[in-house]
Design a protein around this nucleic acid. Structure first.
Lengths: 207, 207, 207, 207
DNA sequence: AATGAATGAGTCTTCATTCAT
DNA sequence: CATGAATGAAGACTCATTCAT
């Protein structure tokens, strides 16, 4: 009897958790973690305040759980396994598209988590090791290889790669800050970005 | 009598304000705005809690004042008036150096202000209109001009310019997140960055 | 149909009530009434939280019911009807043994009830009128009679009797407080106690 | 300047602490620790809720501090140094008077602390080692010596001594429970008690 | 102008109790 | 009857702000 209910109960629990996390992410994104009260989250989720604590340990646990849910979505390795086989431009474009899509699809979550992350060591380390570091490492290996093969100019790989990574992050921040152009042209960004990063601004041919 | 003292009094007041703002910026940068108590700020500044309120309206006013002090430092127009006369590469390098230096010199202030800015509309607008927008506007004008003159490839100016601006911001964020390479190689960044943005990654000549 | 089930149902209900009360007494004794949650009681009893409320009105009702169950055990009159016929020493010994045994056999229950009793008027009155008062009254009558008959010295009956009663209570408290000697020598207590109360400490003969 | 204020400030702090502890003890005694709210304590003390936390870490700290203040009052060694030189009866009387007076003078404090002590290990250990244990130890040494010297009958010292100690505690409990006789005759208790403990109930001469 | 004790509104969190299944 | 998720009132505690000295 209970055997059949267990999976159902698990699903209900998961659904309720997501319901609460969605509400929390929405309010955190709108007002910031500290300005958000548990009462507001409960109200947004359509549950009582106490219900939140049947599913999460604390308000801080909500934020961490929001980020964990994002981690589950992120999967650099998979997506880019195929990209590695492309030429440099194709690779860069795949990365850029993947990144911009990730940001667009998780806009609220990221807006909820990022400001607090800059200030909370636990979240920071989690983010850095899950999102920032893996991409930097992967890019660095790729750039080194392509510099050796001659496809890419002899740039400084660590700094170059961090600059590329920084561009993704900075564009997200600029969107958070309310930049209207980015909001409306977000889908054009990967192309423009790759054009910039791959070909550079200079009209002159590289000597 | 008061006539002679006024300027002196003004200086004393200004000194005390700075003493408090320095302390506040330091603690905000270390623990975040909301986790910082006025007691901690007072302790760091070596004054009593009440004294803070003789110079500032509220805790929030401290943050705004910290940012205002940064605004006073920033002076895009001045610095770049001369840069406009250089060639594209020189211009970009001047901008990058200026930006990286600004970040390095105001590291604590920026770390104090930025996370809260993402969450506080007042601060956000102030930052966007003072720091982000002016540079974007200036860059955009420059890029348009140089595209026309043929010095710069026919890129999409708005997106390109935002990407450049985003890179500066993203590098700052990555430093906040504790990236060691950026911390130690910060001074090498402008060259590497300009090399990337101006020449691009591609080893092939632009057709 | 229900006619035959009634007695059985009554037994089942009684069994379930006792199961819950046993669990409650155990946890109350270990952690105190207020620090105990209904969830802990349910868990200890092996039932769901809601089930408790099918048998008891409230958490407080559990405590009162625990005490009522103790009242049912206690039966001063019965036990001492025979003791009244003994000589003074035998009577005192019978009382002491009865009391110490009662405490030992209901250690957990008493430890659960007593601290809260000191603080809860309802429980206090119940305890005082059921346990303290009857014994005091009985002892007082007995002492008065024996003083008149000359078996007992001309003591102040009310104060003497309360002192004797106090000794029982105090020994229980000292055990609650973790006194190791009392825990291991509890069975020797009645003899030692009667020796003290009956003969006194003095080596000199009463003049 | 500040040199002269320090002692004054210390006195003010001590006065405010005592004001709050008095209020807390009063309300704890009346309603019990857990049923007392910090708001009630504040109201009773005539201060704001927050003020309590300028002087104490937590509600629990109030209780511990109440007990500590009692510890400062208690001074078994001093009082009884002189009593040791008396004969057995005089010694017992001195102890009894000292104990009954201590209870009477700290009635509220004890009523506040004792119930929670039975349930809180920290308080329990503090009480046992400060109040129960020292008196037991001292009595035990005294009884052993007097048994040897022949002034006291050959009783079992550990159990006898604990019984005496238990009587003091039990009398206190009976008062807490609302015994009217004890409340009105408290001052007569030491004599009656010593009469009982020293001479015993028996009218017969010890063989 | 400086101080820091006092304030009390505001928040997170707990947990006894209810009730739909 | 049994269950346990949902509830929300209640309470301990924090901390920005005030103000008498």
């Amino acid at each position: 009897m209970a055997g059949a209910q267990d999976p159902i109960r698990q699903q209900l629990i998961e659904a309720r958790r997501n319901q609460i996390l969605d509400a929390a992410a929405k309010v955190f994104a709108a007002k910031g973690f500290h300005r958000t009260t548990t009462k507001q989250i409960a109200s947004e989720a359509g549950v009582a305040e106490g219900t939140i604590y049947n599913y999460f340990d604390s308000k801080g646990d909500l934020l961490i759980s929001i980020m964990m849910r994002l981690s589950a979505v992120e999967d650099v390795g998979m997506e880019l396994a195929e990209a590695l086989n492309r030429d440099a431009r194709g690779f860069l474009l795949a990365i850029a598209r993947h990144r911009m899509a990730l940001i667009a699809q998780n806009y609220e979550t990221l807006k909820a988590v990022l400001p607090e992350m800059l200030v909370n060591p636990d979240l920071r380390d989690e983010f850095y090791s899950r999102f920032a570091q893996p991409l930097v490492t992967l890019l660095e290996q790729y750039v080194r290889a392509r510099v050796e093969s001659g496809d890419v100019r002899p740039v400084d790989p660590p700094l170059t790669v961090r600059s590329v990574q920084a561009t993704f992050i900075g564009l997200m921040i600029l969107r958070f800050l309310g930049d209207n152009v980015l909001a409306s042209e977000w889908n054009e960004l990967p192309e423009a970005l790759v054009d910039l990063l791959f070909n550079g601004l200079s009209a002159e041919e590289a000597a």
